[in-house]
Write a protein that binds this DNA or RNA. Sequence first.
DNA 1: AAAGAAAGCGCG
DNA 2: AAAGCGCGCTTTCTTT
Length: 386
Amino acid sequence: MERRGVLIDPDTLRQMSDELGQQHAKLEQEMYTMAGYEFNIGSPAQLSEVLFTKLQLPTTGIKKGKTSFSTGQSELDKLRGEHPIIELIEQTRELAKLKNTYTDALPKLADEHNRIHTTFNQDVAATGRLSSTNPNLQNIPIRTELGRKIRRAFIADGDKVLVSADYSQFELRLAAILANDESLINDFNGDVDIHTKTASEVYGIPMDDVTKDQRRAAKVINFGVLYGMSPHGLAANTGMSFGQAKDFIDQYFSLRAPIRAFIDKTLAKARTDGYVETYYGRRRPTPDIVSSNFMVRAGAERAAANMPIQGTEADLMKRAMLKVEERLGDLGDQVLQIHDSILVECPEENAQKVADILETTMEEIAPELGIKLRVDVSTGKNWGEL
DNA sequence: AAAGAAAGCGCG
DNA sequence: AAAGCGCGCTTTCTTT
């Protein structure tokens, strides 16, 4: 994958850079006007000075930081509505991030064929995942519409196409399997919307009555509570009160007793054996699990609870990639791996075959688990439309 | 001038 | 006192 590289359209990215730069300059001027003077938006210290000293925005509960108040997104959320500059900061930050990290940088790294060659590090992540550097191609934007435009600049060569295959709800499904939570497993096998189902059970209401906010809270729970998210963290993420968040978490674990038991078993192993491991035996040492420092110890517990799940995911992906490479032959080339997904470039006439190989190979990579994994496959001319 | 820490934020 | 896990990159600011 490193040698093959992935094709980009550098002209599109350069054009985006221009537009982002112009828009950024415009927003910058508006912010200077609001503040009454020019300052460096990229400097958290200067921005904090503008918000809390010059503009006198309320600092109650905004706290953080060693020297100045934090200006991170989580704190800006609390200030929304207090002053129009808040939205400008958010917009400016998004533009600067996309320009500096992606649209400016990527074209410079392409070879003479406009292909980018990342390095996949195999001995970096403590869980067994790959990581990607110089450039990191595992964090190309997708969550905002503007960001997704960058992903659309990743394309297939000539009349080829891109085929992506990603595991559906990989971590949650593995958690259900490793914890042997039959109720959760049945939900997955029944193609139930797991976040809606969780909300329905936690709130004790029919699935059809679950509101968007309730589903969103359940989604945060499903991803976060597994690894030790606190009532404080859940409240901050969903807008619930601390008390509501605590009740929600209590209700969740009484509902998912097998998950609770699996986490407890994992922590017990960390304490007695000094390591935790994946389903296939990849280990992560856990020396800090016995630290006398509460923060260090609590952090080690969250990391230990997470590793068997994230690590097993990594193990499965690596096995799948090897088998995919074998079965693909000359039909197409794997070009990227993004933790739970594989991206393949292939001639259009092979697309259906490639898609089938990806789907069946990934879904059937671990029959010993006794549970069917689900894979979603998609084909297109660029990465953004997949 | 180079190296490192902090803050912030992109992804799974 | 502080409260999901795993990464890498850019900028600012400080230290060497």
